[in-house]
């Protein structure tokens, strides 16, 4: 463990908590893409299949359970409890366009052709593109509530910090994982225009308005 990875995990946890608080306190999931949340739940499920078979540390196991529980709690809030506030009309990204290529690629490019490893690889590829429906929805609505942009900033920062962690691990322990690293770069690059808007607008107290 290093401060970059710990920072990344905490940013990820913060993002998940911000989202749950936003939906719970406003009792609305307006502006949030349920499809991205489905992809995140799918990502954690595919990645943490070894939750009971591969004990790494208490921290690792606790965080996996928290991520899984939060992901499914968010789906429950969005598709059951506050279903009436879910914005179907703007959350129209076709999930099969993301899930099928990630699954296909995981079968072709992986570290080892075993169930656990292919599922892990699938979760890595899927997570890289899981935010697309959300970014697509923000571009369709043309704006995002500031709480939603804080959520996206924390979520984007998490994998950016993981990239720093991988660079650090490469130089400090010679560890590298090209699949996780390249997918992490793609995932972070997808946030770039959002990061720009967040820093130039939201931090100045303006609303996040995407150029129409």
């Amino acid at each position: 463990m290093n401060i970059f990875r710990l920072g990344g995990d905490l940013a990820h946890l913060l993002a998940i908590i911000i989202l749950l608080l936003k939906i719970w306190t406003t009792r609305s999931c307006a502006g949030i893409s349920g499809k991205s949340q489905i992809l995140f739940a799918l990502t954690f499920t595919a990645r943490y299949l070894d939750l009971f078979t591969n004990f790494v540390s208490v921290y690792n196991s606790v965080m996996k359970v928290v991520y899984l529980a939060a992901a499914y709690a968010t789906l429950y809030l969005m598709y059951v409890k506050f279903k009436a506030t879910y914005d179907h009309n703007h959350d129209t990204f076709r999930l099969e366009f993301l899930i099928l290529p990630a699954a296909g690629l995981a079968l072709i490019i992986n570290h080892e052709f075993s169930i656990i490893e292919v599922m892990w690889t699938f979760s890595i590829y899927l997570e890289a593109v899981a935010i697309l429906p959300q970014l697509f929805m923000v571009s369709k609505t043309g704006e995002a509530e500031s709480i939603t942009s804080h959520y996206l900033f924390a979520l984007g920062s998490y994998r950016a910090l993981y990239i720093v962690n991988w660079v650090y691990r490469y130089y400090s322990e010679g560890f590298y994982d090209m699949i996780a690293t390249l997918a992490g770069v793609v995932q972070t690059v997808l946030y770039c225009d959002f990061f720009y808007l967040y820093i130039t607008k939201v931090l100045k107290g303006k609303k996040l308005q995407l150029p129409a």
Partner: peptide
């Protein structure tokens, strides 16, 4: 194999 040791990450 690098892939295996990734599994200590979330």
């Amino acid at each position: 194999r690098s892939g295996k040791s990734t599994k200590d990450e979330l």
